Lab assay of single mutants.
Amino acid sequence: MQGVVKVNSALNMRSGPGSNYGVIGTLRNNDKVEIIKEVDGWYEIRFNGKVGYASKSYITIVN
């Protein structure tokens, strides 16, 4: 499943599904990501070869 990031500035990509996990990357508005699965309001995603987590509130699913 594919998604597009929708933010005003930047979205942190984290090592786990929560804001208490470390930041491993930064996503920008309109970045395209691969959604692997949903975990407690977060998406596990793949972006630029990295796998991490981002809040699903800021990612819109596209077909």
Rank of each mutant, 00 (worst) to 15 (best):
N12C: 05
G3Q: 03
K50Y: 09
N29D: 14
M13L: 10
V23P: 07
V39W: 10
N8C: 06
V33P: 03
R46P: 06
L27R: 01
I59C: 03
Q2E: 15
W42F: 08
S57L: 13
N20A: 13
S19A: 15
D31C: 04
Y58G: 13
I45H: 00
G41R: 06
I45C: 04
Y43S: 02
K6I: 12
S19M: 13
V23T: 10
L27W: 01
G25S: 10
T26R: 08
Q2C: 04
D40V: 08
Q2M: 14
G49D: 15
F47K: 06
V62N: 09
V5M: 03
L27S: 01
P17H: 02
K37C: 05
I59V: 11
E44M: 06
V5G: 05
E34Q: 05
A10I: 09
G16S: 03
L11F: 07
S9H: 15
K50C: 05
V62F: 11
K32T: 15
N12E: 09
N8H: 14
M13P: 02
L11K: 13
V51L: 11
Y21V: 02
K56A: 10
N8E: 14
V39S: 07
N12Q: 10
N12R: 10
K37L: 12
N20I: 11
A54G: 07
R14D: 01
D31Q: 07
Y43W: 08
G3R: 02
I59N: 01
G18C: 03
S57A: 14
V7S: 15
G16E: 02
L27E: 00
G41K: 08
A10P: 15
V7L: 06
Y53S: 00
G25T: 09
N12T: 13
D40G: 09
I24Q: 04
Q2T: 11
I59A: 02
Y58V: 11
D40I: 07
R46S: 14
V33C: 04
T26Y: 11
N48L: 11
Y53Q: 00
W42Q: 02
L27Y: 01
S57C: 07
S19R: 11
S55I: 12
F47Y: 11
I45K: 00
V33R: 00
K32L: 14
G25W: 07
K32E: 13
L27A: 04
A10K: 07
I24T: 10
G16H: 03
R46A: 15
G3F: 03
T60I: 13
D40P: 07
I35P: 01
Y53T: 00
S15M: 08
V5L: 03
G22H: 13
G52F: 03
K6P: 02
Y53I: 00
I35M: 04
L11A: 14
K50I: 15
G16Y: 02
W42L: 02
S19D: 14
N12G: 10
I59S: 01
L11S: 06
M13D: 00
D31M: 06
T60S: 15
